[in-house]
Amino acid sequence: MRGRTFLSRGRALPVLVWAVSLLALWELVSWYLLEARHVPLAQSKLPYVHEIVRTMGDYAPTLLKEGRVTFGNAALGFLLGAAAGAALAVLMSASKRIEQLAFPYAIASQMIPILGLAPIIYGIVRDEKLSRILISGYITFFPVALNMLRGLRSVQPSALELMHSYAAKPWSVYWKLRFPASLPGLFGGLKIAAPLSVTGAILVELMGAQHGIGVIMLRNLYYGSSHAYMFWATVIVGALLGVLSYWIISLLERAVSPWQPDFRAKGGAR
């Protein structure tokens, strides 16, 4: 763990410098548009950072409440989609036939625009919560299935021969070899899917829901320039929810598969 704290300490400073300069630049351009050039609707185009932050502070309870609704539904959908994706990956890895049968449909499913699918699903289930969950799951499903299948297939022939030489049962081969070997792929898929599932949930909310960050986002967009700060605040909260989801998956990955090449200390211990 010594290597990790060293690494994060070494990384923290440049990141901080970057963030501060970026925010300063934003603030400067915002001022320029508003005060120097007198651009119409300047604060809708690039509002002051400090005003957004203040609005976020003022409306923190609302933003938190609506954000929690979005995140909770997205998380549930994400879990269901991930489970379904992983299950399909296992089936496809076990049988070439199932793969040939299921794979074209899995790809075709990704061709349907979510923007069109969301109202269809909402029209069918007539429940904003359930639609959010379904869309988040739908988005999660494919990257997880694809990446986990690749992981399951990544096993070296010699690693399988070793199992064979010990007369291992098919179940043991999966449990002790294929599953662990698929973890890097699985987490790769989960990391792609997690922020997307949040975006998907927000999209459903834009179709006309009662709760969720997407709802207040849309509402403040309609209210116009007087609500520019609040609109930007909701966009930022939406982005933060995506970042949070990615961050949770990354933490989980480190806990579950600390042996991955990505986590090895630089230079190794040889």
Binding site: E161, L162, A181, W259, Q260
Partner: peptide, 19 residues
Amino acid sequence: ARLAQKYGIVFQSPVLYDW
């Protein structure tokens, strides 16, 4: 003999499981 676990095999590469 294989099913009776009579063999121990060492391959050209170590074939250790990373995890």
